[in-house]
C-alpha cells in the first residue's frame, strides 16, 4: 500500500465520487465541492499567469536578452481591459468594441477553415469514381463498396434534411435510407463514447489497485 499522501488523497476522493453510484451522500458532496473549488482556483491561476504574466508582461518586457518586445500586445491588453467596462453600466457600451473585434476575427478565420477543410475537401472526397482500383490497377472491392456507401449515405442524408418537399414516395424512401445512415453514425459515436468512458474507469481502477493498494506489479 502506498505511503504517499498525494496518492491517498487521490484514492479517497476517487472512492468518494464513486460512492454516488450507491446513493447521494455527504462524502460525495464533499468530494464534488473540493473538485469544483480546486478546479476554479487552478484554472484562474493558470489563465492569469499564462496570459497576463507570461504572454503579455514578458511579451512586452522580455526577461531575456535577444527576444524582441511585442508592443502590439498592448493593443490586445487595452481591448481586454475595455471588456471590463461592462462592470460600469454608464460606459458598458464600450465593451462592444473588443467583443466585435473577437467576433469578427474568429468568424473570419473559422469561415475560411471550415469552408476549406469541412466543406470543399469533404465534398471533393464524395465525388470519386464508384469503381475503385488498387495501386496495381486491379479491381478493389472493399474500396469500391466503401465509396458507394459514402455516396449513398451522403446523398440520402442530404435528402433527409431537405424539408421543402414532403417526404413521400421515392423521395420519402430515400429520406428513410438517410435516417438509417444517421442512426448508424449515432450508434458508432455512442459506442465510441462508451469505450472512452470505460477507459476512464479502467484508469481509475488501475490507480486504485496499482498506485494506492500496490496489488498490481
Amino acid at each position: 500500500m502506498s505511503l504517499d499522501i498525494g496518492v491517498w488523497i487521490g484514492a479517497l476522493l476517487t472512492l468518494g465520487i464513486f460512492s454516488f453510484l450507491y446513493r447521494d451522500n455527504p462524502f460525495y458532496k464533499l468530494c464534488e465541492s473540493i473538485f469544483v473549488g480546486v478546479s476554479a482556483g487552478y484554472w484562474f491561476c493558470v489563465f492569469f499567469f499564462d496570459n497576463m504574466v507570461r504572454k503579455f508582461y514578458f511579451g512586452v518586457f522580455p526577461s531575456e536578452a535577444g527576444i524582441e518586445p511585442k508592443y502590439f500586445l498592448i493593443v490586445g491588453a487595452v481591448l481586454g481591459a475595455l471588456m471590463l467596462t461592462r462592470l460600469i453600466p454608464s460606459i458598458g457600451w464600450i465593451s462592444r468594441w473588443p467583443l466585435s473585434f473577437i467576433v469578427g476575427a474568429t468568424a473570419g478565420l473559422y469561415m475560411m477553415l471550415f469552408f476549406v477543410s469541412n466543406g470543399l475537401n469533404q465534398v471533393a472526397d464524395t465525388m470519386l469514381p464508384l469503381y475503385r482500383e488498387t495501386a496495381g490497377g486491379d479491381f478493389d472491392p472493399a474500396e469500391t463498396l466503401g465509396t458507394i456507401l459514402v455516396f449513398i449515405g451522403t446523398f440520402t442524408g442530404l435528402i433527409y434534411f431537405f424539408f421543402s418537399k414532403e417526404h413521400k414516395g421515392l423521395f420519402g424512401g430515400a429520406a428513410r435510407v438517410g435516417i438509417f445512415f444517421l442512426m448508424v453514425t449515432f450508434g458508432a459515436a455512442f459506442g465510441y463514447t462508451v469505450m472512452s468512458r470505460m477507459s476512464l474507469l479502467i484508469g481509475r481502477m488501475d490507480f486504485l489497485f496499482r498506485d494506492w493498494l500496490g496489488l498490481l506489479g
Binding site: 477543410s117 475537401n121 469533404q122 471533393a124 472526397d125 466503401g146 459514402v150 453514425t185 458508432a188 459515436a189 465510441y192 463514447t193 469505450m195 472512452s196 477507459s199 479502467i202
Partner: peptide, 25 residues
C-alpha cells in the same frame, strides 16, 4: 480519445489526416 475518433474518420478518408489512433484500442 474514443469520443473524438468518429469525428476524425472523414478527415482520414479524404487523406487530410494521414493516420489515426482512436482511444484505447
Amino acid at each position: 480519445t474514443a469520443v473524438q475518433a468518429p469525428e476524425m474518420y472523414p478527415f482520414l478518408r479524404s487523406n487530410q489526416l494521414i493516420g489515426l489512433m482512436g482511444g484505447m484500442t
